[in-house]
């Protein structure tokens, strides 16, 4: 099989998801048998305008980034939104909690006028995306799944059921039973309840299920004496950009 040319790009993010590629260990060697990495800022200095697959990390937060992602979309045959920032806006979406002008001045102070900024958008809110790997950071087994799907031209759908499903199969004690609030019931599965398996709560980094049953969720909050405002704050840590439509 001819090697597929793959380029990694980063927008507003910590580049930690790309670092996960380096953490793959031995499997990385198998992956490198299939792909030729032509651009990857974290590991090489070469750049390229000739690639089949673009793996995009980070959210779109400036008009310059809008132009850049449009260009990448034009060149790439396949575009993969990689990591929470690219998939759902992620942590950067917290910017959207504030008035744009105010937050810009708060961050850049007197130099604010030199720094262009737009509300935080997920990649799919700006250009069409073929595959999505949510997660902060991405869960490598899922990335491998997506890579395999992309290279063989098959679709990959991020599961649309709650993290609770996987968490139960892993037989974890429920965080709510421990008296801790967890976003598992509204967050999309696919990470094999990675955080809860390791004693942490679910922070909702994979985005919300498409049909999260608002009333039912309110009952749960009431049962556990959790205020709506508090849980909204928790949800908005990763999911604030969901409120935006496509970038016009």
């Amino acid at each position: 099989m001819k090697k597929v040319k793959v380029a990694f790009f980063d927008f507003t993010c910590c580049e930690g998801c790309q670092l996960q590629v380096a953490n793959m260990g031995e499997m990385l060697l198998d992956v490198l048998d299939l792909i030729e990495v032509v651009e990857f800022r974290e590991v090489m200095s070469e750049k390229s305008n000739d690639y089949d697959v673009a793996i995009v990390e980070g959210s779109i937060t400036t008009s310059h980034a809008v132009e850049r992602i449009k260009k990448i979309r034009k060149t790439a045959k396949v575009l993969i939104a990689y990591g929470s920032c690219a998939a759902i806006g992620g942590i950067n979406g917290m910017k959207n909690n504030f008035k744009l002008k105010e937050i810009r001045e708060y961050v850049y102070q007197k130099d604010a006028k030199h720094f262009d900024t737009i509300p935080t958008h997920a990649v799919h809110q700006v250009v069409p995306v073929d595959y999505t790997v949510p997660g902060c950071p991405v869960y490598i087994p899922e990335f491998i799944q997506v890579l395999k799907a992309a290279l063989s031209g098959l679709p990959y759908n991020v599961p649309d059921n709650a993290v609770c499903v996987e968490c139960k199969l892993n037989e974890n004690e429920c965080m709510f039973d421990k008296g801790v609030t967890c976003l598992g019931p509204i967050t999309r599965a696919g990470c094999n309840s990675w955080c809860i398996n390791n004693g942490n709560i679910c922070y909702g980094c994979r985005g919300m299920v498409s049909n999260p049953a608002e009333n039912g969720q309110k009952d749960i909050l009431e049962k556990h004496k959790i205020s709506l405002e508090w849980i909204e704050n928790k949800m908005n840590m990763y999911n604030k950009s969901r409120e935006l439509g496509e970038l016009k």
């Binding site: 059921n161 709650a162 609770c164 139960k168 199969l169 049953a213 749960i220």
Partner: peptide
């Protein structure tokens, strides 16, 4: 009330 978490069937 149901949030379709699937706990009951699992």
């Amino acid at each position: 009330r149901c949030v379709a978490c699937g706990n009951c069937t699992n």
